[in-house]
Structure formats: C-alpha cells, structure tokens
C-alpha cells in the first residue's frame, strides 16, 4: 500500500539553478519571437517556386509599399500592446491624418505634415491621459477615439462629400510617390521608423518600462517605473504614427480619401499578434511586427496570384492564420506556466 518501495532514480533532475525544461523554454521563446519570420520565409520561397510573376521586383516592391502604411501604424500598436493596452482608434486616426494632410497642403507641404501630426498626437495624448491617469479601460477609451476621430474627419470633409486633393507638384506628393531603386520612399521611411522603434524598445529605459508595465504593472510601479508617463507616451506614439502613415498614404494617392481605414485597427492588431507580441502584454518585438505585417501582405498577394480564387479568401486565410498563432501562443504560455 505504501510507496516506500516505489521505483526511484529515473527522474532527470537538472543541476541547481537550471530547472528542467530550460532548453525547451528556449525553443518556445524562439517560436514565439521568430515564428512569423520563419513562416514568412517559407511563404516567400514557395510563392517564388509556384508563381513566376511573384518574385519579380515590381511585385515585391508593390507588397512592400502597400504594407508600409499598415506597418507604420502597427509599430505604434506594438508599443501599446506590450504595455498591455490596445488602441482601436488607429484606423480612424489613419484616415483623419490623410484628410488633414490633404486639407493642410494649401499652406504648404510642411503644414500638410505637421497638421495631421499635431491633431493625431493630441488624440493620442487625450486617450493616454484618460487611460493612464483616469484609469479607464483602453478598449473603451480608444473605441470612443475611433468614433470621435471618424466624426472629426467627416466634419472637415462635409460629411465625406468633399475630397481634398494633393497637387502632384507638391513636395508631399513627391515624398509619397517617389522611389529609389524601384522602392517607394514610404518604404524607406517605414524602415527607418522601425529601426528607431527597435532601438527605443530594446535599448532604452523607456523601452524597458514598456515591457515592465506589460509584465506586471504593480510590480513595475514598486520598482520605480514611471507608469503613467510611459503609458501616455505609447498612446501619443500610436496616434502620431497612425496620423503620419495616413498622411503618407494620402500623399501617395494624391488625395485625402475619407473612406479609408475602416476596420484597419483589426488588421493592425492581427499583424502585431501574428508577430509574436502577446495581447496580454509584457512580451513582443518590433521585428516580429514587421514580419507579421509582411506575412499578411504576402498572403494577400499570393491569393491574388491564384487568379480564379476570390480575393475574399485572403481574409479567410489571414483569419485562420491568426487563430493558429493565438492557439500556439496560448499553448506555449500555458506550458511555461505549468512547469
């Protein structure tokens, strides 16, 4: 009945300080961080083998430029989500940024860039203050922001009836439409922003605060992390980046299109999560986000290559992919917690 005679000596115990599963944890970490990049490479290779029109410079450049606007918005969202928050307003703010740029171009290209940055930054600031200082739920605050920014956009554009144009000769239009080596300026701008974002996140105290708040806000506060300031800052960043991306997109299209950005926040969140950033906060990376954005772009492009497949399937595939990512993430964190 008793178990004194139970067989012993078969467990494998790791030496002190290295609990069992440390190696496994490393593997999980790799999957978490670089899973999206790995799948992206896989898709690029199979895409190139399957469709001869896929790996052309034109096509890849096209993926890059269409992804760059989403990527810029997703950069801000990455910071927000790592703090454990969410920003649903980015789609509306993106559209608002575009309309404001087209509206402001009458005072010159500089004004056309500064106006959306000022307004969208202010929206971010207001949201950040409500979330960090008044402690309202990010979901609700930014949902209000989504509606508010869309309303503001409509009021500027006569209920959406007026579309402001950006003259082709303006500097703004040239930034949006010009290219070097077959790749549009916005792509380079996005890359620079991501580089800066990566450095900010990994190599500065601000970045460490962002991780710390998402990993445990109370603990972070006890450790002296400036919680309020950091949270306000990430929402301001998100607003600024969404507005800037909107302005750039308008410059590329030569007009402030009012119907853009509806539902964009969901694509952005999907890209960030696919990139390995945890919706619960505390973990994630800027490089993952870029992989996530490109992955969505490549999936869409590949489905377009399959001529007779409706492009609606792109959303089905993206959705399925997102679901798989979330399942894997949940599984990984559950295994880690159980140990």
């Amino acid at each position: 009945m008793t178990s004194e005679q139970a067989a012993m000596g078969t467990t494998v115990t790791a030496p002190q300080g290295t609990p069992p599963g440390a190696g496994r944890e490393r593997v999980f970490g790799l999957v978490q961080r670089h899973g999206a990049a790995a799948v992206l490479v896989l898709l690029l290779v199979t895409g190139s083998l399957a469709f001869e029109r896929f790996p052309t410079g034109d096509n890849l450049g096209n993926i890059a430029i269409t992804s760059s606007f989403l990527a810029t918005v997703a950069l801000g969202m990455t910071f927000v989500i790592i703090t454990g928050g969410i920003d649903l307003s980015v789609g509306s703010v993106f559209a608002l940024g575009g309309v404001l740029a087209a509206y402001g171009v009458r005072w010159g290209s500089l004004a056309a860039l500064l106006l959306p940055l000022a307004v969208c930054g202010a929206i971010g600031l207001l949201q950040g203050l409500l979330i960090a200082r008044v402690r309202l739920a990010p979901f609700i605050v930014t949902l209000a922001g989504l509606l508010g920014a869309r309303g503001l956009l409509l009021s500027i554009s006569d209920e959406g009836a007026r579309t402001y144009l950006i003259p082709h000769a303006s500097l703004l239009a040239r930034i949006g439409q010009g290219s070097v080596l077959g790749v549009g300026y916005p792509v380079y701008l996005t890359l620079v922003l991501f580089l800066a974002g990566a450095v900010l996140l990994q190599r500065t105290r601000f970045g460490q605060s962002v991780y710390a708040i998402g990993g445990g806000q109370d603990a972070a506060a006890l450790m002296g992390v400036p919680v309020t300031r950091t949270k306000v800052t990430v929402y301001v960043m998100s607003g600024l980046l969404a507005g800037f991306a909107g302005a750039l997109n308008a410059a590329r299209l030569s007009s402030g299109v009012t119907i853009l950005g509806t539902g964009m926040e969901l694509d952005v969140i999907a890209a960030v999560v696919i990139g390995g950033t945890l919706l619960t906060g505390g973990a994630g990376s800027v490089s993952g986000t870029i992989a996530g954005v490109l992955l969505l772009g490549v999936i869409q492009n590949l489905i377009n290559q399959i001529g007779d497949l409706s492009s609606s399937y792109q959303q089905v595939v993206s959705g399925a992919f997102l679901a798989v990512v979330v399942v894997v993430q949940t599984y990984l964190s559950r295994v880690q917690r159980l140990r």
Binding site: V199, Q202, R203, T204, R205, Q208, S209, Y211, A212, G214, G215, G216, D218, A219, A220, L222, M223, G224, V225, G282, A283
Partner: peptide
C-alpha cells in the same frame, strides 16, 4: 515585486541600467 516576463538581469537593474552615448543601454 518583480516582472516575471523580463530577464533576471533586466529586473535587477530596471531603471538604472548602465548606459552609453545617446542614453542607449549597454546590454
């Protein structure tokens, strides 16, 4: 009162990481 998801080293030195030029953390 620490952040479980961050590394041991980053927890230990959070807020007083050694920095190089431009305020960048010397990892």
């Amino acid at each position: 009162g620490l952040v479980p998801s961050m590394s041991v080293g980053r927890n230990l030195l959070l807020g007083r990481e050694p920095r190089r030029r431009f305020g960048l953390i010397d990892v």
